[in-house]
């Protein structure tokens, strides 16, 4: 096994082009579990911790740029939380403080788990993912980026640079996550809702990928049912399909009550 530690984005992209089998590692909250439990033995690890270009966030023209290396703790800080409240609420549900200090938005996108907590809030904010390789950059919508459970469109020579999200003018949004205990859970089911001219909901852990559902404001009454019907949940070790569908209805109703004021 090799560990490569680039010091700049340019170097990182070059290394990724040279070693397309390299597994990027940023906060390590997913990759290290695979290593510690002998589930993966990648030939190369690409340590992105020293790539400054991937860090931080910025805001301009109703859009927010989130670097792939943005941590959940950073997403909870007041200034960013004001711009993206659902993402901040989602971040507060992630693991314990230790995980929030290390886990990143880019990691959530790269892993593309159906339970990824950042994905529903990003979906309702129209997130576009910026990808790069030595050949150049491209932008894909988050909906297109996620193609299946733990699968995305990232090419083997590409890295995730970050996402652009639309904060909206009068956007009201919230995030909720159901788990069998009151902290540190993988979502049994999760939901982000945004009301801003129309209704948008995105759920997690209720289908192979996090999915966006939209409706007109006038359809608020039927929206909980529509969201539940858009889901394709399964029974697994964390919960049942019927519960997930039921919970989505309740969560959507409650989320609308919070956002339609």
């Amino acid at each position: 096994m090799d560990v490569l530690t680039p010091r700049s984005l340019e170097e990182a992209l070059r290394l990724k082009a040279e070693r397309p089998d390299a597994v990027p590692i940023q906060g390590g909250t997913d990759v290290m579990v695979e290593l510690n439990f002998d589930r993966a033995r990648p030939a190369v690890l690409l340590n992105l911790n020293e790539v400054a270009e991937l860090r931080g966030w910025s805001q301009a023209d109703g859009k927010v740029w989130l670097g792939a290396g943005l941590t959940y703790s950073e997403a909870m800080e007041p200034k960013l939380a004001e711009a993206l409240p659902a993402l901040a609420e989602a971040s507060r549900t992630v693991g314990g403080p230790q995980i929030r200090n290390r886990g990143t938005i880019g990691g959530n996108l790269g892993t593309a788990s159906p339970a990824g907590d950042a994905l529903p809030p990003l979906l309702v904010c129209g997130a576009e993912v910026k990808l790069a390789s030595v050949l150049g950059e491209r932008v894909v919508s988050l909906e297109e980026f996620l193609v299946g459970p733990k699968r995305n469109v990232l090419a083997e020579d590409e890295l995730i640079l970050g996402v652009t999200v639309d904060t909206g003018d009068e956007s009201r949004q919230t995030f909720m996550k159901v788990g069998p205990r009151n902290a540190m859970v993988i979502a049994v089911v999760s939901l982000a809702v945004r009301v801003d001219g129309d209704l948008r909901a995105a759920f997690g852990s209720a289908g192979p990928v996090s999915k966006l559902v939209r409706a007109e404001l006038a359809d608020a009454d039927s929206f909980p049912q529509r969201v539940a019907e858009a889901a394709s949940p399964i029974d697994d070790v964390r919960g049942t399909a019927s519960y997930r569908r039921h919970a989505l209805r309740i969560l959507t109703k409650r989320a609308l009550d919070r956002c339609l004021v």
Partner: peptide
């Protein structure tokens, strides 16, 4: 109930 999951007010 639901704690950090923010599921109810």
């Amino acid at each position: 109930p639901g704690g950090s999951g923010n599921t109810t007010r």
